[in-house]
Write a protein that binds this DNA or RNA. Structure first.
Length: 702
DNA sequence: ACGGTTATAACT
DNA sequence: TAGTTATAA
C-alpha cells in the first residue's frame, strides 16, 4: 500500500447551515435568496450565512443586511433569536445534534464545528469491500460524486469535447473514466477502490441526513483530513468530491498555500515569504530538514508530508464540544465603563451559560469543572486581552456571575470602591470546560434528588432520561443517550408535520419521507459494525459505589454538586451548615463572594461593608476590612509592578493553610496554581497574578 | 464602532 | 498549570 493511503477519511460540511435551519423553520424561505443576520439596529444586522441563490447576487457573509438588500432587493432576511440581550444560537446547535446523530449511524465521527464533521471510514470500507465479492462499482451509486482530476483529456480533441459539456455531463464522464480505471473489487487493498467505496458510503450518509433532517450537505473523500477538507468545497452545494492521491500533484501545482487548512494565517504567510513560494506543491523542493529549520520540527515534518498529499492527523471520536461558552462584544461607545454594567452583562452571560450547562448535563451526563472569564479592554487588539479561571462547582447563574466578577475586578484601575470601570471593557466571555462524568442515578439518595428535582425544574420534559434510569438497578449511559436520540427523532417528526402543513406542496411527501428514512436506517445500520451504541459504550464509566450523605440532611440543591466536586460539606450543630468550597478560594479572598454561604447562613449573620456595600459575614468583617486595606495598598502601586518580593515572601507552606479541603479539590482549582507561584520566575508573571497572591497573603494566619 | 460568536490546539 | 496566541467556521 502506498504511503499515506492507509485510511479513507471524509469531511462533511452542511451547505449554508444557518440558512437551511431557518428555511426548515419557515418554508417560505426555501429556494429563495436568503440570509441569516444577527441584530438589527445597525445597518439591518450582520450577515452570518448566505443561501446560494443570494450568493449569485454577490451577497456575502460579513455584509450588512442593508447593504445586501441593495445588491438583491428580494433578499429574505431571517434573524437570529435574541435572548439575555444577546444572539442565541440554540436552534442551530440543536439542528447540529440532529445531523451528527444521523451521521453517527454510519461511522465514528469527529465534530469539527457546528456544521462540519470528519469521519474515518476505513473499517466500514474494508468491510463493505469484503462483502462485495467481485461486483462492479456502478456509476448510479455515485450520482452526486465528482472525481478531482477527471476526466483526463489525453488529446486536444478530447479537451475540446469536454469544454462543450455541462457540469454534470463532465462529472459523469470523469466518474466513468475513473471507475473504469479501477481494479476489480476483489483487490481489496487498492487505495482508489477504497475511496470509491468510501464515496458510496458518503452518498448514502448524505441521503440519510437529508431524509431525516431535511438538510443538504457537501463532502470531500480522500485519505486524510486535510485533503478531504480541501476538496469538500470544490463542488458545493449538495455534491461530494473524491480526491485520489494520484490527482494531488496536479491540484497542488497551482494551489495557493493559504487554501490548506491551518495555513490560512500567519504560518502560511511566513512560508510564502521565507521560501518565496506560492503554491503548496512547490514545497516538495525542500528537504524535511530545511523545512524544520525554518518552521520547527513539528511543522517541518508535517509540511514535508503535506505537500505530497500526506497527513496523519487522526479522526478523533468526539461529537460533544469540549467547552461551552458565550461572549458578547461591546464596541466603541457601548463599551462597559461602570461596575454595574460589567455586573449586569456578566449576569446575562451567566444566565445563558447556566441554561446550556444544565441541558448539557441532562443530555450528556457530564459536568464542567472549570469556569474561564475573558475580557478585552478598550484599545486592545487581541481577541481576548485577559483571561482568568476558577473552579465551577455549581450550575447557578448568580454564583457564576459573582465569581466571574471577583476574578476580573482587579482589572478595574478605578478601584473597587468606585462606580467607574476603567479601562472600559469591549468584550466579556464566559466559558465552562474540563468536563467529567456526572454522577448517575444509582449513586443513592442524591441521585434520586438529581433526577426528580433538577430535571423537572428545568422544563426538559421532552427529554426525560430519568424514566429509563430510575428503574434500572445499573443505569447505562448509552440508554440515556439513545433515549435522547429517540426523542430527538420524535421531535423531528413533529417538525416535519408542522413544516408540511405550512408548506403548500409538501403535504403528501412527509409521510413517505419519514418512512424511507427509517427504512434506510434499518438497512444501513445493520450492515455496520456496532453503530452508535457501541460508540457510546466505550465512554461508559462504571458507576461510583460511593454512597453520600442521604438526601434528607441536605437542604439545598448544592448538595448535588458537592458530591460531584468533592467539596467538603461539613454539617454541624446550630441549625447552620458550613460549606467549604474550593471555588471560594479561587484567587480571591474567601469572603469576597459567598453565594453558597448565602444559601446556608441566615441573613442576620451578615453585615454590610461600608466600603463596598457587600454582604459580609459578621465574624469575617475584620478580615474583610483587611482586604480593603490590601486592595488600597495594591492600588497605590502604580501598575505592572511585579508585586514587591511578594512571591518570595509567601511562606512555602502557604497552601497548607487549607490543606484539608484543598487537597481534595479538583486539580483545576486555582489554589494550586497560586501556591506554585513562588516556583516560577517573577518577571514573567502578569501583574494580576502578583496582585492576587499579594492580597491572598494578607489573610494567611501564619 | 461595527465581523460576532464559538471552538480547538499549540506554545510557554 | 494557567494563560496567551493562532486558526478556523
Amino acid at each position: 500500500m502506498e504511503y499515506g493511503t492507509e485510511r479513507v477519511v471524509a469531511l462533511v460540511d452542511m451547505d449554508c447551515f444557518y440558512v437551511q435551519v431557518e428555511q426548515r423553520i419557515n418554508p417560505e424561505l426555501k429556494n429563495k435568496p436568503c440570509v441569516v443576520a444577527q441584530y438589527k439596529t445597525w445597518k439591518g444586522g450582520g450577515i452570518i450565512a448566505v443561501s446560494y441563490e443570494a450568493r449569485a447576487h454577490g451577497v456575502t457573509k460579513n455584509m450588512w443586511a442593508d447593504d445586501a438588500k441593495k445588491l438583491c432587493p428580494d433578499l429574505q432576511v431571517a434573524r437570529v433569536r435574541e435572548s439575555h440581550g444577546k444572539a442565541d444560537l440554540t436552534p442551530y446547535r440543536e439542528a447540529s445534534v440532529e445531523v451528527i446523530e444521523v451521521m453517527s449511524r454510519f461511522a465514528v465521527i469527529e465534530r469539527a464545528s457546528i456544521d462540519e464533521a470528519y469521519m474515518d471510514l476505513t473499517a466500514s470500507v474494508k468491510q463493505r469491500l469484503r462483502n462485495m465479492e467481485d461486483q462492479q462499482i456502478e456509476p448510479h451509486l455515485l450520482t452526486a460524486t465528482f472525481i478531482q482530476g477527471y476526466p483526463q483529456a489525453t488529446t486536444s480533441q478530447e479537451e475540446t469535447e469536454h469544454a462543450a459539456l455541462d457540469k454534470d455531463a463532465l462529472r459523469s464522464q470523469g466518474l466513468g473514466q475513473w471507475l473504469a480505471s479501477l481494479p476489480p473489487t476483489t483487490q481489496t487493498d487498492s487505495a482508489e477502490l477504497q475511496l470509491a467505496v468510501g464515496a458510496i458510503i458518503v452518498e448514502e450518509m448524505r441521503a440519510a441526513v437529508e431524509q431525516c433532517t431535511g438538510f443538504q450537505c457537501s463532502a470531500g473523500i480522500s485519505h486524510n483530513k486535510v485533503l478531504s477538507k480541501l476538496v469538500c468545497g470544490l463542488n458545493k452545494p449538495n455534491r461530494q468530491t473524491v480526491l485520489p492521491l494520484s490527482s494531488v500533484t496536479q491540484l497542488f501545482s497551482s494551489l495557493p498555500i493559504s487554501k490548506i487548512r491551518n495555513l490560512g494565517g500567519k504560518l502560511g504567510a511566513s512560508i510564502t515569504e521565507t521560501l518565496e513560494v506560492e503554491n503548496i506543491g512547490e514545497l516538495t523542493k525542500f528537504t524535511q530538514g530545511h523545512l524544520a529549520q525554518h518552521f520547527g520540527l513539528k511543522h517541518g515534518q508535517w509540511l514535508y508530508d503535506l505537500c505530497r498529499g500526506v497527513d496523519f492527523e487522526p479522526v478523533k471520536p468526539r461529537h460533544l464540544p469540549k467547552s461551552i461558552g458565550c461572549s458578547k462584544n461591546f464596541q466603541g461607545k457601548t463599551s462597559l465603563a461602570t461596575k454595574e454594567q460589567v455586573q449586569h452583562w456578566l449576569q446575562q452571560l451567566a444566565l445563558e451559560l447556566e441554561e446550556r450547562l444544565i441541558k448539557d448535563r441532562e443530555m450528556n451526563g457530564r459536568v464542567a469543572k472549570l469556569l474561564t472569564v475573558g475580557v478585552k479592554q478598550a484599545g486592545e487588539t487581541t481577541p481576548s486581552s485577559f483571561s482568568r479561571c476558577c473552579a465551577l462547582a455549581r450550575y447557578e447563574a448568580n454564583k457564576i456571575s459573582t465569581d466571574s466578577f471577583a476574578i476580573i475586578k482587579s482589572l478595574n484601575s478605578a478601584g473597587n470602591h468606585q462606580q467607574a470601570w476603567s479601562p472600559p471593557l469591549t468584550l466579556l466571555h464566559l466559558s465552562a470546560s474540563k468536563f467529567s462524568d456526572a454522577p448517575t442515578a444509582s449513586s443513592g439518595g442524591i441521585g434520586t434528588f438529581f433526577s426528580s428535582e433538577v430535571i423537572s425544574s428545568q422544563k426538559l420534559s421532552s427529554f426525560s432520561p430519568s424514566a429509563g434510569l430510575a428503574r434500572q438497578p445499573t443505569p447505562k449511559r448509552p440508554g440515556m443517550i439513545e433515549s435522547f436520540f429517540q426523542n430527538a427523532s420524535k421531535k423531528r417528526k413533529e417538525d416535519h408535520v408542522e413544516l408540511s402543513e405550512e408548506g403548500e406542496n409538501e403535504l403528501k411527501d412527509s409521510g413517505e419521507e419519514e418512512k424511507s428514512c427509517s427504512e434506510s436506517n434499518a438497512s444501513t445500520s445493520s450492515s455496520l459494525q456496532g453503530g452508535i451504541s457501541s460508540f457510546f459504550q466505550k465512554k461508559q464509566v462504571p458507576t461510583s459505589a460511593t454512597t453520600t450523605a442521604d438526601g434528607s440532611s441536605v437542604v439545598t440543591g448544592q448538595a448535588v454538586d458537592s458530591s460531584q466536586s468533592h467539596e467538603h460539606v461539613i454539617t454541624q450543630s446550630d441549625k447552620k451548615t458550613y460549606v467549604h468550597t474550593s471555588d471560594s478560594l479561587c484567587g480571591v479572598p474567601e469572603h469576597s463572594s459567598l453565594p453558597e454561604a448565602a444559601l446556608s447562613f441566615s441573613t442576620e449573620d451578615y453585615l454590610t461593608c461600608d466600603r463596598c456595600g457587600q454582604a459580609v459575614l459578621a465574624w469575617e468583617m475584620p478580615e474583610h476590612t483587611d482586604y480593603h486595606f490590601a486592595q488600597d495598598l495594591q492600588n497605590s502601586f502604580s501598575s505592572p509592578l511585579p508585586s514587591p518580593s511578594s512571591s518570595n515572601q509567601i511562606p512555602a507552606n502557604r497552601s497548607k493553610t487549607h490543606a484539608g479541603p484543598r487537597s481534595k479539590t479538583s486539580p483545576a482549582s486555582c489554589s494550586r496554581t497560586l501556591s506554585s507561584g513562588p516556583l516560577r520566575p517573577q518577571a514573567k508573571k502578569p501583574k494580576t497574578v502578583g496582585t492576587v497572591v499579594t492580597l491572598d497573603s494578607f489573610f494567611k494566619k501564619s
